[in-house]
Amino acid sequence: MTETPNSNRDCGPMLALLLLRVWLGVRAIATGIEKFSDSRTLQVPLLDAAGKPDSSGAVVEVTQKFYSLHSYHAIPDSMKDKFAQEPFLPAFLTAPYYGILGWALIALGIGVLLGIFTRASLFLMGLLYVSLTFGLILIKQDAGVSWLAIHVAMIAVALSLCRHNRFALTCS
């Protein structure tokens, strides 16, 4: 039997790239949005099974998560304190970096997910993760470095599959 060449009809690489775009896009968008999250503690009456205030008159503290522009925080304060002590990370660089990190993650995530200049979006996302890796190396967060390395590897694979890009709003 003669094997029929079917490389043009093999949709595997296309689906692989699509899967990577969805994963990387959702990951970046959710991470960016979480930087606008915060929690607040409310005091509300304790309700019984019938939904009426408990006879003790007790008040309970309930924690609620919420999102707002005002709540924006690029990275946890504890990590920010550690970066502030690093000579390679001067404030005139880190301040604008913190300012755009969340927005950049959301924008690049949307770009990768919807296929808006897919190559450029993937490459910039990779650079962003490399920049984060640099900071984590300085403060010896090896687990975080490994974690980001997986992301960068996935981006590299996605870039190598870009010629199979489909379901994209713009050309790659």
Binding site: L46, D54, S55, S56, G57, A58, V59
Partner: peptide
């Protein structure tokens, strides 16, 4: 104390 009342009664 409502904390004790809830703990005991509920």
């Amino acid at each position: 104390n409502p904390r004790y009342l809830v703990a005991r009664n509920r």
